[in-house]
Design a protein around this nucleic acid. Structure first.
Lengths: 245, 245
DNA sequence: CAGTGGTCTAGACCACATC
DNA sequence: ATGTGGTCTAGACCACTGG
């Protein structure tokens, strides 16, 4: 058995089960979309009661890591377009509707060394390489977001060649399907800035126009940063929606 | 018994218990800070097992409505300054620190009729009155946020007189202690705007300077809107922090 | 029909807080 | 010592899915 199911210290049983399952998801034993063994099967394997497995899986379900379907089973969560948009795209129209970016016009896509900030955020060495995609995203037929996306080249080997041809508007599904990398959480920092001359030209506005800048760091399951992204958004008839509970 | 504990339709038992407890919290039978009856006492009253009560209370705890303390009991959540800041104040310094607004300089505090937007957001009639507080909040010794807060006068009877003297930087604890109104959730809409002449003067900047505008609608337990707030923030060495899970 | 997750119960024991 | 919530177990039954 390569998974001895250690229970470090005085951690509750269900937490140990949860972490063991998480470990297997993170390491790819169970990939996104896969069905997990049933609660009873897991209980038997880990030598705990079914109720304990249930608590572990409920915990994972609460964090959007697995999806439970009565009568069918428990599945590893996948980045459907719906999930990606609902969780990771927070720009909506002022009347509350969800208007989605349609086209994604790639301006450039190149492989280069990271600058100091990028290397720090992505935990890379200055010798490593990153792939940077710069693009314009349109909403309602008009340029709305100027965006630069930066990922470690090591994990996305041929991205710089492929991306220029056709990059989907939502990247995370592609990360998962093509490179086996699942984005699980992200933190965003928002600021108001004035458009620089490049962004102004790309967005068809005057330099200095107020833009909403969103700086995102996205992480995998195990907390490794996999992407940094800086979006400059025209908030004209639109806004960034945030819910506080 | 004025609380017959109805179970509408095929709702699970624990959900009925949860809603019954929620109803008593919302109606003030159990106020913020109060201790709830023990799990066994509630189980006895509702004629269900202790495990079912546990699930109901765990659900409420997951929503920050009650706080469970092993060995002590279960308490109705209160707006401590820590909770208020952690949950409802998202401006942090760029280096990740939590720098808090110190002073709150009230510019005006008056009672008036709501405009159309305010009436709509607060679900008021145009005949009703609101109290509007306009203030400047300082961070690191410098004016950082221009803010206007608007609440229904009916629920905050003497706020217009009291507020001008001394308004705390965090209002929600005052709402709770003085007016028995608990803010439970809020939604925020963020935009980039250019400073108008008033804000520019108040913040000591040039008109047109990019500002982060945060429009918040805050709600009580039962979902009634109790406050709308529009903050214009200088994001200079600071940003709005948002976490996506 | 069999298999899955969802609910509900009952009871045992543990960890913590208070007196 | 007593009472609280936290964990864990075992078993029953329900609701949903698919063959």
């Amino acid at each position: 058995m390569n998974d001895p199911f250690h229970r470090p210290e005085k951690q509750p049983l269900y937490a140990a089960v949860r972490d063991a399952v998480l470990e297997r998801i993170g390491s790819g034993v169970w990939a996104p979309g896969d069905i997990l063994p049933s609660e009873f099967a897991l209980a038997d394997e880990f030598q705990v009661s079914q109720g304990t497995v249930r608590k572990a899986l409920d915990d994972l379900a609460a964090r959007n890591l697995v999806v439970r379907r009565q009568g069918k089973g428990t599945f590893v969560a996948v980045h459907t377009p719906e999930r990606a948009l609902f969780h990771f795209f927070h720009i909506v129209t002022d009347d509350g509707g969800r208007e989605l970016p349609t086209t994604s016009r790639v301006l450039s896509c190149r492989r280069r060394r990271p600058d100091r900030l990028e290397a720090g955020a992505l935990k890379l060495d200055r010798q490593d390489r990153v792939v940077e995609i710069r693009r314009i995203r349109e909403m309602d037929g008009k340029a709305a977001i100027a965006e630069s996306v930066c990922v470690p080249a090591r994990w996305f080997p041929d991205l710089d060649k492929r991306a220029v041809e056709e990059v989907p508007n939502e990247l995370y599904q592609m990360y998962e399907e093509r490179y086996g990398i699942t984005v699980h959480r992200a933190s965003e920092q928002l600021r108001a800035i004035g458009a620089d001359s490049d962004d102004a030209a790309a967005l068809g506005i005057k330099p200095g126009t107020p833009l909403l800048e969103i700086s995102r760091v996205a992480e995998t399951l195990d907390g490794r940063p996999v992407e940094i992204r800086r979006s400059r958004c025209l908030t004209d008839g639109r806004h960034y929606q945030s819910v506080i509970v």
